[in-house]
Design a protein around this nucleic acid. Structure first.
Lengths: 152, 152
DNA sequence: ACTATTTAGTTGAAGCTTTAACTATCTGGA
DNA sequence: TCCAGATAGTTAAAGCTTCAACTAAATAGT
């Protein structure tokens, strides 16, 4: 039973430390802007943004959780808070009694609009301004490959 | 005052969603393995691993926090827990009365050894097995660039 | 039809992180 | 020398996430 994978070589370690650094620091930077401009976290922003682009601004909780890269439990707690703030509303799915649908409200749309300009500016500043067009495409390909595996 | 950055185009949006997906899902996957194999989070693993590679297995709290990509407050709480478990010890810095030094203990080294094989295997599976050598290098360059900006 | 299993969602408790306030020490000028 | 401000670290409280237990509805197998 020699499953021992060799430890990372120097190039791999450099890549790994860079990736981990981005993975740990990017959310902090995004949260900071969104909290300041629109009293929400990046996860909450993602939830609202996905709803906005959805058919009828409505989505099943579990689909929304998957798309938002979070657990259903996490989404459920967040949806409770968003609902209390009047940014979304939840109601039973007519076709499947187990499901709950979440819909963006007008208040939610307004809150997104408060967040968006500063958010785009920051995303450009942190990511796309640092990369040329080829690098952007290459990062997209690589991230897509890794994400496929992470989603199982 | 037209600071309006244009919203992301399709290619940029693809890249962004991929990057965000990795950023949100990778820590969950790493935490799961480390929690299972060695009762620690990925942040705790990082702290112990950086100590192991440090001169004298010792580091100043604030340097360790920066290297570990976390806030000093976060590290302070984590260090308390690690110290309670006997994985590190803390003591005053002789040359600067404000500073605290953290040192890895034998117990900490043993715990790292429990975590490491499964960790390397998972990192390979999730990242390096998905990429060829060129992509690994390219990801390293890109992540390094982004990280530079994220560190200010 | 009947039951066992799976799927969807919620919730309380525990655990972790952030925020803000606080203490203590050091450094760079008047 | 003295002091104002900067730097290092800790901590309590608030907020967020995970974990595990739970309810309810749908589906599959008999």
């Amino acid at each position: 039973m020699n499953d021992e994978a060799p430890w990372l070589d120097d190039d791999e370690m450099t890549t790994w430390l860079g990736l981990i650094g981005v993975v740990m620091r990017l959310p902090v930077a995004l949260d900071e802007q969104l909290r300041r401009d629109a009293r929400m976290s990046h996860f909450e922003f993602g939830v609202l943004a996905h709803l906005e682009h959805a058919e009828d601004q409505t989505m099943r909780m579990s689909d929304l959780a998957f798309l938002s890269n979070g657990s259903l439990s996490r989404l459920s707690h967040v949806a409770k808070r968003l609902e209390d703030e009047g940014l979304i509303e939840r109601f039973a799915c007519p076709s499947d009694g187990r499901s709950t649908l979440a819909r963006l409200t007008d208040g939610g749309r307004r809150r997104l609009a408060e967040a968006a300009p500063g958010h785009v500016r920051l995303v450009r500043e942190l990511v796309f301004d640092q990369l040329d067009e080829g690098e952007t495409a290459e990062l997209g390909r690589i991230a897509g490959r890794l994400l496929e595996r992470l989603k199982q």
